[in-house]
Design a protein around this nucleic acid. Structure first.
Lengths: 168, 168
DNA sequence: GGGACCATGTAAGTTGTTACATGATTAG
DNA sequence: CTAATCATGTAACAACTTACATGGTCCC
């Protein structure tokens, strides 16, 4: 259900085509709510059917630009009014939970892999934080908070994995 | 795909019926990999078809007990040999990302809700840590590490939400 | 005998993944 | 002209959710 709102949110910042949205997903939302090409296009069709977005222009190639409608903005706002609490699944933690089925060596390799992945992620996000040119719009302010969350989390994950390595 | 391994993992610790497994999901795996009743039963059928588990007894009512087979253990181990790296979606962070569409009041309420939820989660997990009677088996050792992860994460989430509240 | 709990199953619908297919335009 | 990129769409499948349906057994 959230993809719908991710798209409405991006379109409310700026109109664009499915292709545009995909690029913008990659650039900013990839770490929060990844979406595939086929998903984006089919969701756009549904949103257009429901009058939450509308076609505002046909460009070159088969490009179709969409803009959010008043109804779409309302839909987005009403979703944002109710904070969602995640209960994410974690295949990674599931593996840790079951590590007793393997040897201590495999377990050690496991934590090392987790530590490395978390450290790389933290590094990637810190780099992103430095290279993005932030303006002082509200959108960017919240974007920064999300990015900061990602960094803190990745750093905490790396510390935890390290702890697991040393306390056997 | 992970549900398969969650079930194999639980069955490798102890044989049991679908109903048993559901209870054990609630008790321990709920925060890592929740599963519904219908999912568990249909996955059990598939695993039995593939000879990864086998029926070891019919109890009273329609109870059917399963045990993991050698092939099942091998399947589980080969999954554990390759660390999985999560890229979880977060509807909650998506909302934060889009908060510029709302008023500062809604945004504030949002962070307060996130803080409260994270604090409650941390409290719940700390309580769990204290009440569970741990033995010094390998399984329990890893279970504790996972629980510790959950606590650290919930605490970090709460701190982050607080930070967001004070730095507007 | 009736309510609580044990125990399994099915069916419909949604969301997400992967792969394939097609065509248009631009840059070199 | 041809390779890269732009741009959209469809089809098949896997995973997950929700709801409904059914029956057995225990205990008061």
């Amino acid at each position: 259900m959230s993809l719908r709102y991710a798209i409405l949110g991006l379109l409310s910042q700026r109109s664009g085509s499915g292709y545009d949205l995909l690029k913008r997903f990659e650039g900013s939302l990839a770490h929060v709510w990844p979406a595939t090409q086929s998903q984006v296009y089919s969701e756009l069709s549904k949103l257009a059917d429901g009058k939450f977005i509308e076609v505002v222009g046909q460009g070159t190639r088969h490009r179709t630009d969409y803009a959010i409608t008043a109804a779409g903005r309302e839909e987005l706002r009403s979703w944002l009014a109710e904070p969602v609490i995640d209960h994410p699944r974690s295949a990674s933690l599931l593996q840790v939970f079951l590590l007793s089925e393997t040897s201590p060596e495999v377990a050690k390799a496991h934590f090392e892999a987790l530590r490395a992945a978390a450290a790389a992620q933290a590094e990637e996000l810190r780099h992103l934080e430095e290279t993005v040119t932030w303006d002082d719009s509200a959108a960017d302010r919240y974007g920064r908070l999300v990015l900061r969350y990602g960094i803190l989390r990745a750093e905490a994950d790396a510390r935890w994995a390290e702890e697991c390595l040393v306390t056997p």
